[in-house]
Nucleic acid binder design. Structure first.
Lengths: 338, 338
DNA sequence: GGGAAGACTGTGAACGTTAACAATGGGTCC
DNA sequence: GGACCCATTGTTAACGTTCACAGTCTTCCC
């Protein structure tokens, strides 16, 4: 207290003077260069401590050309899936000593993704993770400003860029096979928006399972991931005859379906079985507790950072990896024998 | 295609040469300095375009001492509240031309917050928003590395640092008064963890409303925000006599309470009325749809950036602001006349 | 026509770090 | 004992931008 603007932050030269060495020796101590006499090292360390010196990472980044910052582009981090993935990414990145700079897109159009990418590249990030599971986003990645490594999460086919994703097709298949195994004649599906690769994958898994069992696939009902859209789909389903099993593409919509059924007096699981997707923390406490497919978002986040760092730090030509995380099945009380 | 490593990025000097001016003139064009002949400006702009030049923000930050990056420290961005707040912050920051660097804490202890703050300060952020509504976090902010402006979201009393928050006490009061107005003798409360300021505020509002109406306040039941803890509290409440109205400190726990009541055959709202807090997207589709207190996380995010920027860009002594966002009341179907 | 004000442009020096290279000193090996 | 190596340290020059200041060229006024 006292001086209005504490005297200027000490720099490396100040530490050097204090310790009676050159600034380069200070730099060497900071960077753990092996060839520094241990007595010198302690002297420098003491000086650093005494002066309260902190290395200026901006200056460092300027000369090394590495910011130790990773960029994350995501769509609507308010949703549980993206939020969890970003969280996993952030944890993994920090553990690896990287900062995380984030851009949340409100809507995904080609130019939005491109802008976000440019924006992050300008800032000098060492690599970028794109959590944007829409087809439109995935395509944009192909023709990106080169030079900065990229990993796509849930990124579809991926011509040129590495991808980490959950096996959505397998998830859809698991859900459907479970319902079929319970003796249901066929399985209805409330799908996610058609622009989303995840939605497509789940539809594909559902179709495949039905086809394999030789059952007809009813027309899927369209949703937009929101509980409301699930509710509306639920009302439609409740009014239709012969619906005994529904696979809903995410837990939020499943909640809406459950609500609609409950309003219409349709008992779950007595009259209709319902399976969701995601396993959000709430699912276990739905009425009834929801049987669902769990995605390990944490693993996705961790893996994407691993792949990205391999690209950043690795030598040689950038191999384009594709890493698939398996989903798992969580049985609760919303499904029953037909 | 072709060169394995595209030739080095052009720098300002390259643009200058191309346009036949000095590097300083290029800088002036980039920074929209008024005294540049418009013909010169176009020439520079063309050169920039032709070369595909992009300004190096790291070098710029080194000399200006401003990174145009804001730090965000948050606790568990997987929860709806923090996620929404961070989202609002990010949108507002980007709109103001700032990058956002984020640190998500797994648990909040004094040293965790301090480390996060140091970490961000090292990176050279121009300001920090701390979304850490625990008392322990709030206290740490007081004795922080000075020099970098800070705003606390949901930060409690705040000796020295600006705070933006939702009026939790008012929220608790609204919920309780609503239930009292419906004719309930008293209102039970499932509270959040005691370390959280938000939990305290809601308890205080609930107590105040009961006291004002001259009613006795039953012992609150402890929860940890999770649906499971709500479920357990719900089981206790279901087994107790004379419970007709419950104010639950967040929607997730309210879901657990609803589930427990449903299992025990307690009808909501016929036998017991329930009010939640947050208004998460799911609440509208609970069984029954939940009456709750809505927090405008978006406004909180926007306001916190406004306050922070005022501190960063404003001249003069840093005024310590306190901005309170009012909660609003959402009536749905989980409450009824006693 | 002399001078001053202002518009426009250029030159050199920061900013704080790491990289590259040079210098010193002590030892080892033959 | 001289060549050579290695550990340790210092010196100088980048990195790519903005800032401070110094020009130059108009223009305008008396």
């Amino acid at each position: 207290m006292g001086s209005s603007q504490a005297r200027r932050m000490p720099v490396m030269a100040d530490v050097a003077r204090e310790a009676g060495v050159s600034h380069q020796t200070v730099s060497r101590v900071l960077n753990e260069h092996p060839n520094v006499r241990s007595e010198t090292r302690t002297r420098v360390l003491e000086a650093i401590d005494k002066l309260g010196y902190r290395r200026n990472l901006v200056a460092r980044a300027l000369v090394t050309k590495h910011s130790r910052t990773l960029g994350v582009v995501s769509f609507d981090t308010t949703l549980y899936g993206p939020a969890s993935t970003v969280y996993g990414i952030e944890q993994a990145a920090r553990a690896a000593g990287y900062f995380v700079s984030i851009v949340s897109l409100k809507s995904i159009d080609r130019s939005g993704v491109r802008d976000a990418l440019d924006y992050l590249a300008d800032q000098g990030v060492d690599g970028i993770v794109v959590v944007a599971p829409q087809r439109s986003a995935a395509q944009t990645l192909a023709d990106l400003a080169p030079g900065v490594p990229i990993v796509a999460v849930e990124g579809g086919e991926a011509g040129d860029v590495s991808v980490v994703c959950v096996d959505q097709v397998e998830g859809g298949r698991l859900a459907t096979e479970h319902l079929l195994a319970l003796g249901h004649e066929t399985v209805w599906h409330v799908r996610g928006p058609s622009d989303w690769l995840e939605a497509e994958g789940r539809v594909a898994g559902w179709r495949a399972a039905l086809a394999q069992a030789g059952r007809a696939a009813p027309e899927p009902l369209a949703g937009d991931w929101s509980p409301r859209s699930g509710y509306e789909a639920g009302r439609s389903l409740a009014s239709m005859a012969g619906v005994s099993a529904v696979f809903v593409a995410n837990d939020q919509m499943a909640l809406g379906v459950l609500r609609a059924f409950s309003e219409q007096g349709v008992k779950v699981p007595d009259q209709v079985s319902v399976v969701g997707f995601d396993d959000i923390p709430e699912s276990e406490f739905f009425s009834p507790p929801l049987t669902t497919i769990r995605q390990d978002f944490d693993a996705v986040g961790r893996n994407s950072i691993e792949v990205l760092l391999r690209q950043i730090e690795g030598e040689g030509p950038r191999a384009c990896e594709r890493l698939v995380v398996p989903p798992s099945f969580v049985v609760r009380a919303s499904t029953a024998r037909a």
